[in-house]
Amino acid sequence: MSWPLGILLFVLTVIGMEGFAYGAHRWIMHGPGWFLHKSHHRPRTGNWELNDLYAAIFAVPSFVLLLGGVQLGWWPGWAWIGAGIAAYGAIYFGFHDIIVHKRVPTRYLPRSTYMKRIVQAHRLHHVVETREGNVSFGFLVAPSPESLKAQLKQRNRAGVRAPAARVDQMLSER
């Protein structure tokens, strides 16, 4: 396979993975896979959460396609597609786990309009701690924070986590 065609497959796969990630997040993780993903909408108590299993699950197709395309004699395009899946996973890890959730200490502060937008969109996604009523399921492409706030308001803030001070007050009233 020619390099230009391989690189095109790689780039198209990285772009297509955002659509896949949106669908998996919205209809699998917030659907039948909520039993794993709900750990990600709760405060983390250690370095790991059940939701981290999704990284291993989504790495399997990448690994299989790379192995098949490089070692098992399959169509070489599968290796480029597998590499694109792996690249999206690395980009996602960098944005999601390092920049947004700060699971790896860094001094990085988002300054660009784009970075501020995706960080704020993901944080608005996390104000809802229930399976339903969420907003912003994509990651590298995110609606404006204003439109997400309007969606949450339209839903009467259903499932939105109470501010910490309110939770403390509610607990003291019991």
Rank of each mutant, 00 (worst) to 15 (best):
P4M: 15
P4D: 15
P4S: 15
P4N: 13
L8C: 10
L9I: 08
L12S: 08
V14L: 08
E18Q: 10
A21R: 04
G23C: 14
A24K: 02
H25I: 07
R26Y: 07
I28N: 00
M29Q: 06
H30T: 05
G31Q: 00
G33R: 00
W34A: 09
F35K: 02
L36M: 11
K38N: 01
S39E: 03
H40S: 09
T45V: 11
L50W: 14
N51W: 12
N51F: 15
D52P: 07
Y54T: 08
A56C: 11
V60A: 09
V60G: 03
P61L: 14
V64L: 13
G68N: 11
Q71N: 12
Q71P: 04
G77W: 15
G77Q: 12
G77H: 12
G77V: 01
A79W: 10
I81Y: 06
A83H: 07
G84H: 03
A86Y: 05
A86C: 10
A87R: 08
Y88T: 01
A90P: 11
A90D: 01
I91S: 04
F93L: 07
F93A: 10
F95V: 15
F95W: 15
H96T: 02
I99A: 11
V100C: 06
H101F: 03
K102D: 01
P105K: 07
P105D: 04
T106V: 06
R107Y: 11
Y108V: 02
L109W: 14
L109Q: 13
R111V: 04
S112A: 06
T113S: 11
Y114R: 02
M115Q: 06
K116P: 03
R117G: 04
R117N: 07
V119H: 00
Q120V: 14
A121H: 09
A121V: 07
A121W: 08
H122P: 14
H122A: 09
R123W: 11
H126S: 05
H126A: 02
H126L: 01
H126Y: 07
V128I: 01
V128Q: 01
E129H: 12
E129A: 10
R131S: 07
E132A: 13
N134T: 09
N134S: 10
F137C: 00
A142T: 06
S144T: 10
S144G: 03
K149A: 13
R155N: 07
R155W: 05
N156S: 08
A158N: 08
G159D: 00
P163Q: 06
A164G: 01
A164Y: 06
A165I: 10
R166N: 07
R166P: 05
D168C: 14
D168R: 13
M170A: 14
L171H: 05
S172F: 12
E173S: 15
